[in-house]
Simulated scan of single mutants.
Amino acid sequence: MKAYFKPFLAIFLILLADQVLKFWIKLNMSLGQEFHILGDWFIIHFTENNGMAFGMEFGGETGKLALTLFRIVAVSAIGYGVVHLVKHKYHRGLILNVALIFAGAMGNIIDSTFYGMIFSESTYFQPARLFPVEGGYSSLFHGKVVDMFYFPIIDGTIPQWSPIWSGENFVFFRPVFNIADAAISIGVIAILIFQKAYFKEEKQENIYPHNEIIEE
């Protein structure tokens, strides 16, 4: 059980931080409201999306339902993967990063599955209410994902000499995201960067099994 402690603790802390912040945003901020943390470079900007990570949309109500159900299946598979990796003693870094991906996926599933039932609609004039008497703003599996982190580090205009999008406004980083999105991104990027180290031991075991006698 000791091997499960760190990845499960990471999952718990990420989910806790993600949901506490989302609840605070929903109950205290109206849509579009923002707070500047570091000038114009780091902004808490409340927005919601019906689709995927970083505010991307996906196919209306039917697409929303399909995406939520797909997320549930995917996160179940990822959760099984975490247990499998721990059980078979894979690299600790790989286990931790898969745990980050699991926690991030679970965080957004909570929004899209339950938020429509427990919150009133967030508007541009007032925050939402928790467990409103008249019921939530939507049904099971049709909630909106809460996003708030906005980093418009570079805000300018694309030069006129550019062969594409010349003269158009350019913002980096434009997408608004949440803790769950960040956890997924960190986990995926870390696995891609350190994959050789993560899978080196496994490859070595496949080449030279412990019970195999190597003859010269």
Rank of each mutant, 00 (worst) to 15 (best):
I109W: 10
Y90E: 00
G79H: 14
F114P: 00
D111H: 03
G104Q: 05
K89H: 14
T113D: 09
M117A: 04
A103N: 02
A77G: 14
V86L: 02
T123L: 14
Y90D: 02
K89P: 10
I101R: 11
F125W: 10
T123F: 14
N108K: 15
A128F: 15
K89V: 05
N97S: 14
A103M: 08
F102L: 12
D111Y: 06
N97L: 09
G116Y: 11
S112T: 05
L96G: 04
P127M: 05
V83D: 00
G81C: 08
A103S: 09
K87Y: 06
I109Y: 11
S122Y: 02
F114K: 02
K87A: 11
R129T: 03
K87I: 06
V83F: 08
I101Y: 10
N97A: 04
F119H: 01
A105C: 12
L96V: 02
S112I: 01
R129M: 09
H91D: 01
H91K: 04
I110R: 14
Y90F: 10
Q126C: 05
V83R: 10
V82K: 13
Q126E: 04
I110L: 14
F102H: 05
A99L: 05
R129Q: 08
I118E: 03
M117T: 02
R92F: 11
V86Q: 07
Y124S: 11
G104E: 02
F125D: 08
A128G: 15
G104S: 06
P127V: 00
F114W: 07
Y80Q: 08
K89G: 12
P127Y: 04
N97H: 10
F119Y: 09
I78H: 12
G104T: 00
Y115R: 03
L96T: 01
M106K: 08
V86P: 05
A103H: 06
A99V: 01
A128L: 15
I109T: 12
G107E: 01
Y80C: 09
R92T: 11
F102G: 00
I95G: 14
S112K: 06
V98H: 05
S112V: 03
I101D: 01
G107H: 06
D111F: 03
Y80E: 01
S122F: 03
Y115Q: 05
P127A: 04
S122W: 02
Y80P: 06
M106N: 01
K87H: 07
P127Q: 03
Y90C: 00
Y80G: 13
K89C: 05
A128D: 15
S112R: 07
R129N: 06
E121L: 14
G104A: 10
R92P: 12
F102V: 03
F114S: 00
S112H: 07
V86C: 08
A99W: 01
V86T: 04
G104R: 05
A103E: 00
A99C: 07
G107M: 02
L85A: 06
A105W: 05
A99N: 09
T113Y: 12
I110C: 07
A128N: 15
I118M: 12
A105R: 04
F114T: 00
S112C: 08
S120P: 07
Y124C: 10
A105E: 00
I109C: 11
G116R: 07
I78A: 13
R129H: 09
S120M: 07
L94I: 00
H84N: 15
L94A: 00
